[in-house]
Design a protein around this nucleic acid. Structure first.
Lengths: 245, 245
DNA sequence: GCAAAAGTGTTGGGCTTACACCCATGT
DNA sequence: ACATGGGTGTAAGCCCAACACTTTTGC
């Protein structure tokens, strides 16, 4: 037998499967109790069965004239008004019983910086939740969120994606705050400084902070020549119109 | 707007999209010139337009009653008679123009050990190629193969997947051969031995090799309590009936 | 001056690398 | 005996964690 992917024959078999995209959006905002930076994610309320009224990941159906990543970005903008700085495919979920009907969901995860996060409405339909204190979600979305956070915590330690949480200019203390929030532990300021300074991930600027009740800190910026992550032979350009920096 | 993934309404939009699975199968076999272990992959010949006659990745359509991974395993067995020891999702490819019709391909990659590799027929329909000397492939399969090899080379250095290339019992020299073939460079035998011995990835047995014209080598086995790779909250059990170690 | 955060120096331990050397077997 | 790969010992170098210490601001 020599069936190969993408053959034209025998295509009726797959007719009953629909393709959707969802995105786990993560942003950094102060924790309501401690004020420390913490991971938040916006969820949307379902307004139809199944799981009517439950919270779920933002997403929607893929249209025939959209690529998968374009589709994820479009559904994201439509549902939460976010144009993320970093968008990466997470996983394709396609168990038979993950939804009453047969749906394959290609899930992405996105990192947004504070300015972008403010563009998300916080109303009856969309609400921000602490990433590890969200309510039970519709479908298999709990599992998806857990996987996304696991991947974020892994990837932050071997890539530059932490920078995608921050604005144009940031102090090394702010960058360290991202790592601490994601990893869930404190880091030595002195050693952290040296580690990032010896690489070329961030570049110092001439500017400094002011107004704090202590010594001003130098501001840094992302190295524009470097991507946030090395995705190997997969060039994953952000959809047209996105701020690639 | 509050569209969420998996909604029932508005499903007509996605009707024109079909879902396929493909798999990049990799096995270790001697290089024809040097005799050293090298990476090989079986490809299948297309027998229909488009790309009639070209080589392509094994795969096929997803059936409505199959989960994605089950489907990948089933198409794999049907087309190449392989039941892989390790099977992991690689990426979902869904650009609009990657095929004349609209196809989303969920691609897996598989590692097989020598016994399994022998079950693959090598005939007019299916043929083994050196992983880095394969002919131009149909669709975007060249790009997919490049990404799969990149991921293999990355993952081999922070997981135990190298063991998936070997049989039940193996010497440390054989295991080192896997790393050398994948990474494309030689490793110091002494240091390699210590690195793997100090961990618990492999366990020594009482058996040794014999018949070589040198000192016998101790045989090791995979630690059955450990998975080849940590896929986090994604428990990715192999389809029923597969050898889980 | 004092508190607080920015930033520098220094030290010790663990891990990697390089390579010298011994061991056991078949011919 | 000797060639060959199996296996052990050891020292240099690098990276990282820990922590003492200095600097610069606001109050």
């Amino acid at each position: 037998m020599t069936t190969t992917t993408d053959a034209h024959a025998d295509d009726g078999a797959t007719a009953g499967i629909r393709v959707a995209v969802s995105t786990v959006i993560v942003a950094l905002r102060p924790h309501p109790d401690t004020g420390e930076p913490a991971l938040w994610m916006p969820l949307v309320r379902r307004v139809a069965e199944p799981f009517d009224g439950s919270w779920a990941l933002p997403g929607g159906w893929v249209r025939p004239d959209e690529g998968l990543e374009d589709s994820a970005a479009a559904r994201l903008r439509e549902t939460t008004n976010v144009q993320p700085r970093y968008l990466e495919q997470l996983y394709a979920f396609g168990d038979v019983d993950r939804s009453p009907s047969r749906v394959v969901s290609v899930v992405y995860w996105a990192l947004v910086h504070p300015d972008e996060a403010d563009s998300v409405p916080d109303d009856w339909n969309v609400r921000w939740f602490l990433a590890d204190e969200h309510p039970p979600l519709a479908f298999d979305h709990d599992r998806i969120v857990a996987y996304a956070l696991w991947r974020l915590r892994n990837k932050v330690s071997y890539s530059r994606i932490a920078q995608a949480f921050l604005g144009d200019r940031f102090t090394l203390a702010e960058l360290r705050g991202v790592y601490e929030a994601v990893l869930g532990r404190t880091l030595d300021p002195a050693n952290f400084r040296r580690q990032v300074a010896q690489g070329d991930a961030v570049l110092p600027t001439d500017e400094t902070t002011s107004g704090g009740r202590h010594r001003p800190a130098r501001l840094y910026r992302s190295n524009p020549d470097l991507a946030y992550a090395d995705n190997g032979p997969l060039t994953t350009p952000l959809p047209a119109g996105s701020p690639t920096r």
